[in-house]
């Protein structure tokens, strides 16, 4: 049973990791927690489903369109919400509240347009399951894990190996200095929001397919857990967010199975608190962070 639980935990943990990367990236460049990220995760799953059932009919195409639209929403959050605040040099807390506002707008807009009831989701990843003794692994679990690892590698390469990624790192160190060096700071920030939204949307779609249903409130709890994963790994550090996410999934699953199912969330957050007590910057964190 331990092995089964571990596989369950890693699968769900890898989707937390995708959302956690978004928190970490935005925090890296803006020193701001984007609370709308959880809602964007939900929105991504919804848009794919709605395009698929309502308009397009081809899952691949609607998935692509869904990602594009979600990226647009991510861009909107920054362009029409946060950039104005940056220009006016408003305290960071206002930006934080703005992202909370966006998360409410997205969630309730989805409820108004698509209804609040849980919707069935087609599972495109279902190619059967394999059983070894007591352990059952489904194709969905394998594919989710593979896609997540691939995306994590891709994001790491983008951030640490490309010119664009270097610009992001530069902006995260000093916006003024980056601007002086000819980096389009606003452009980089928008890009960061779009990448984090796309990752969240992919995670939302994968989770929708995995559980074969989706509802408007699914973003809230995942958002909290992904944020906790990012903090656990060290906010602003990409490998930290990834490891943090997977660990969070494993803690939660093992906690639920070996300690008490009623306290599963409490257990994972308690472990988070213990880690933070002994290593305030998170498992992989290096620099001291001034949190908003």
């Amino acid at each position: 049973m331990f092995l089964q639980q571990l596989i369950n935990g890693i699968t769900i943990g890898s989707t937390y990791a995708l959302v956690a990367i978004g928190y970490s990236m935005v925090f890296g460049v803006l020193e701001l927690i984007n609370f709308a990220n959880g809602s964007v995760y939900m929105l991504g799953g919804y848009l794919t489903l709605m395009l698929y059932t309502g308009l397009v009919g081809s899952f691949g195409l609607s998935f692509g369109l869904g990602l594009l639209l979600t990226a647009l929403v991510g861009y909107t959050i920054d362009r029409f919400g946060l950039r104005r605040l940056r220009e006016k040099k408003v305290p960071k807390i206002a930006g934080l509240i703005t992202t909370l506002g966006f998360s409410q707008i997205i969630e309730n807009a989805v409820r108004i347009f698509f209804g609040s009831e849980t919707k069935p989701y087609p599972n495109m990843l279902d190619f059967g399951q394999v059983t070894f003794g007591n352990v059952t692994i489904t194709s969905s679990q394998v594919i989710i894990l593979m896609i997540s690892i691939l995306l994590m590698l891709l994001t790491s390469v983008t951030v640490y190996r490309t010119k664009m990624g270097k610009a992001m790192l530069a902006v995260s160190q000093s916006q003024e200095a980056s601007q002086l060096m000819g980096i389009n700071v606003n452009g980089i920030i928008s890009l960061t929001f779009m990448i984090s939204s796309i990752l969240a949307a992919i995670a939302g779609t994968l989770v929708g397919m995995y559980y074969q249903n989706i509802d408007a409130s699914m973003g809230a709890s995942v958002g909290m857990k992904a944020l906790a994963s990012a903090v656990l790994g060290g906010v602003g550090v990409l490998p930290g967010a990834m490891v943090g996410g997977v660990l969070m999934g494993i803690f939660e699953t093992l906690g639920a199975s070996y300690i008490s199912s009623g306290y599963r969330d409490a257990i994972s957050f308690a472990i988070l608190i213990i880690v933070i007590l002994f290593k305030p910057s998170g498992l992989f964190g290096r620099k001291q962070i001034n949190k908003v």
């Binding site: 639980q5 699914m218 639920a256 199975s257 009623g262």
Partner: peptide, 21 residues
């Protein structure tokens, strides 16, 4: 006898794996 938080829990696999055992 396993419990969960309604409308928040999406992942029942830990509980169900335990029950299966």
């Amino acid at each position: 006898a396993e419990t969960f938080v309604p409308n928040q829990t999406k992942d029942f696999t830990p509980l169900l794996s335990k029950i299966k055992g």
